[in-house]
Design a binder for these strands. Structure first.
Lengths: 109, 109
DNA sequence: GCATTAGGTCTACTTTGTAGATCTAATAGC
DNA sequence: GCTATTAGATCTACAAAGTAGACCTAATGC
């Protein structure tokens, strides 16, 4: 099964779609989760997810801005979607009878 | 932050309320998650959660049935609820823009 | 009193999580 | 064209969480 951080990386990459690359994922993760995400943690996890076939990455071209180096583009694979979905459902199912999730459910518009 | 398995244990214990003890948690987890949960994995995790103050455990009395040994009763602490909630929200927030969660959202009655 | 059963303890190893120092190649400005 | 500055990525090392399963223990049934 996926780890929690792995899930965050996977789902953030999926959310960003075509704009997903290392640094952008990191920024987005920090915004959404409200906590810092170290560079090392991120790329180590990307490497592992790629090795497992849940993510594919390739070097993109440089962008025309100061310091605009080549980006390591990232995309979730079908296998990645499957795993992420399984993780999400596992958490959701386990949360069915639990107050913090029920609250959230009731509070939903 | 919590790990995924830790979350499952915590939320299952919370769901079972007063009936939460080692073996029952294990059974419930297997049922809900549709995969086996080894004894070792469970108790190791319970120990760690207790050490972190997210769970408290104590030995209950023996039950009047064949082999009915003393049970290790388990209860989630307020700190445990806080952590579990934080985990749940982190996963939920990260999943907002992601197809597998949106599907689930739309499918909800 | 011995087989059987519910339930728990212990040990060891693999995977994930996490930080941060360092390296690289691009533009800006002179 | 040289140098400072910047976006972005790689590498190393260690801590924490995940996982299995052999083994121990104290009940009841007969």
């Amino acid at each position: 099964m996926l780890g929690e951080f792995e899930y965050l990386v996977l789902s953030t990459a999926a959310s960003l779609g075509d704009d997903a690359y290392g640094a952008a994922i990191r920024e987005e993760m920090e915004e959404v989760s409200d906590r810092t995400c170290s560079i090392g943690a991120l790329y180590t996890t990307i490497d592992r997810l790629e090795k497992k076939g849940l993510l594919k990455t390739w070097m993109g071209g440089a962008t025309a801005q100061r310091g605009g180096r080549a980006r390591r583009m990232v995309r979730i694979t079908p296998a990645g979607v499957r795993e992420a979905k399984a993780f999400y459902e596992a958490v959701t199912r386990a949360s069915r009878r639990v107050p913090w999730a029920i609250e959230a459910e009731e509070g939903r518009p």
